[in-house]
Write a protein that binds this DNA or RNA. Structure first.
Lengths: 333, 333
DNA sequence: CTGTTAGCGCCTTCAA
DNA sequence: TTGAAGGCGCTAACAG
């Protein structure tokens, strides 16, 4: 079924069919209705492939993510897909894995599909080994990084103030009387750098000594890190983690070490994921607004695709999700 | 940059360029090398859009899922994407949500993109409100259901023996001395029906009375269900859940009711997801092999795409992931 | 082994 | 307002 078939049956030319199909150009009311009737009765589905070839509009976008099994990434990808679908775009998802090795391949695939835009989920993509191929290959389509901004003219970004969010979280711990607070990072990204900076600022503001650790981004990683921390820093009374999953691991280690949470050690994660409600005790977490990140990214992309003017950067601020691993807030919060 | 540009620069015709591009037809070694050189130097990326229009091979597939944020679905989608990518296909994902309302729209979008195949993740798609539009619209491309089989000639499926897996799990509980075992289902799907059947078979085989409950597919749902169960069935000593997430909720309710797990009540989930290691105590779970499901589905699709003969159905069997919410296995396992 | 030539299904001037 | 005609970039006979 092609527009030729429709045109013949409606007794018009394909140009007219095309016009009613995408509401472009002037079409007489009568002919429009006649054509539309045929369109409906035939259950006609236009070929985006042909449309794409002729107009360069493929109505598709690509989403590059490290691993969609990660709740963090899947919730952003979900919002992107839903929002783009609402605007008539289909979403191609790519799971890159932990290294940039397959990045070029995926970008070439997306380009060969002539996607109209590309999303990058996560600040890893700001690292040079990723950023370089991106700048090199993606000069002609809008690019939006979720939680970051690439240095290229066609790039847009949504930035979450994780530095401030973490600072506020640590300030909160301090306000609750915690003094020996450690921070555990788990990935070499801008995002983690910002969180760390927030932690350092809060500690510095109160003249407190910092204690930091690095670990693998996994339950076991967080477990090890926390175990090491409490072993080497006996008086520790709080730990701020850069990820919920590592924080959950931390919870396990603390429990194993005979420490009570939050009485002896308070714990805070980051991402405010489902994990927070699943672990015991329920994990308090810095909420970096994944849902809003995803939606904002998609909306920014849509604006770019429609060449609507809009800010290059969308800024979001974190919230704090208080649960059971931190002290109840002081009076008046 | 098109094959015309390449052809001109290499001093050959576009047909030759096309041939070396997809290794079809005979091409002299010398010319092949010459063309290839130009291809490389120009960083040429063929347009799958044009290829798709000319050959109907778009090198893309669609994945319909209820909600990719669900770990269950995302791990299958992940495996599908990775496996398809390995075969040169891009994956378009669609999050349908809990009702079939938007199904037709998504199918039309996929069809207009002329995807070469479609995956359905989850046995919900076997329910008639879903199955009907699928049969109606998807007669011309291979369709594979992950954990189910649709009744149409071009459909393939991977089936996990969840009935048997659940039966084995319950048998295991019985072998450990449990007698008053309840089962909690959480979605109106074939999958849950099978699990329930397995439970019933095991109970019947030992002349035990069944106790079943239904709940929302969420932490709170499982929590409520378990709370109700222990309230109304005081002697309960084990609960088999159809999902990890509801089992985790159950854990919370049992703890709140002052019951110890597994001493007083043993608990088993299903899916063997990351949740199992995050909750406390760690959840034992029926492992329905999500990874293998995803991979098998993709491999089945690839076979269909290449018109390679292969079984219409791939059958997988469950395993059991023993953790802390069930008794240690009896000697000799 | 290589080139010529139709399409594939649709968009988009340009005329009428 | 409507139609005719030339691409878009590539594949696939069909000739040579």
């Amino acid at each position: 079924m092609t527009i030729y078939d429709i045109a013949r049956e409606a007794g018009v030319s394909i140009a007219t069919v095309s016009r009613v199909l995408n509401g472009s150009g002037k079409v007489g009311e009568r002919t429009r209705r006649r054509v539309q009737a045929v369109l409906d009765s035939q259950q006609y589905i236009p070929s985006r492939v042909a449309q794409g070839l002729a107009s360069r509009q493929t109505s598709s976008v690509g989403v590059l993510t490290v691993d969609i099994r990660d709740v963090h990434h899947s919730s952003i990808a979900y919002m992107i897909e839903q929002t783009m679908a609402g605007a008539g775009y289909s979403t191609i998802v790519c799971n890159l894995g932990g290294t940039p090795a397959r990045l070029r391949g995926y970008l070439r695939a997306l380009l060969s599909h002539r996607v109209n835009g590309v999303f990058f989920v996560g600040s890893v993509f700001l690292n040079e080994p990723y950023a370089q191929p991106i700048r090199e290959l993606l000069a002609d389509v809008p690019v939006v990084v979720v939680n970051g901004l690439l240095d290229m003219p066609n790039a847009y970004g949504v930035l979450v103030n994780e530095c401030e969010g973490t600072r506020a979280s640590v300030e909160r711990l301090i306000a609750a009387g915690r003094r020996r607070i450690a921070m555990v990072c788990s990935s070499p990204t801008r995002s983690d750098e910002n969180k760390l900076r927030g932690y350092e600022q809060a500690m510095a503001a109160h003249g407190l000594e910092t204690v930091t650790a690095q670990c693998a981004r996994s339950l076991a990683g967080g477990e090890e890190a926390a175990a090491g921390l409490v072993r080497e820093h006996p008086g520790l009374d709080a730990i701020q983690f850069a990820e919920d999953i590592t924080a959950v691991g931390g919870l396990r280690a603390l429990s194993a070490a005979g420490l009570r949470v939050p009485q002896d050690v308070a714990v805070v994660g980051c991402n405010n994921s489902t994990y927070c409600d699943i672990c015991t005790p329920r994990l308090s977490s810095v909420d970096n607004r994944l849902v809003e990140q995803g939606r904002a990214a998609a909306e920014r992309m849509i604006a770019a695709l429609q060449k609507r003017p809009a800010a290059r950067v969308v800024r979001l601020s974190c919230a704090f999700a208080a649960r059971e691993t931190t002290d109840a807030p002081a009076h008046g919060e």
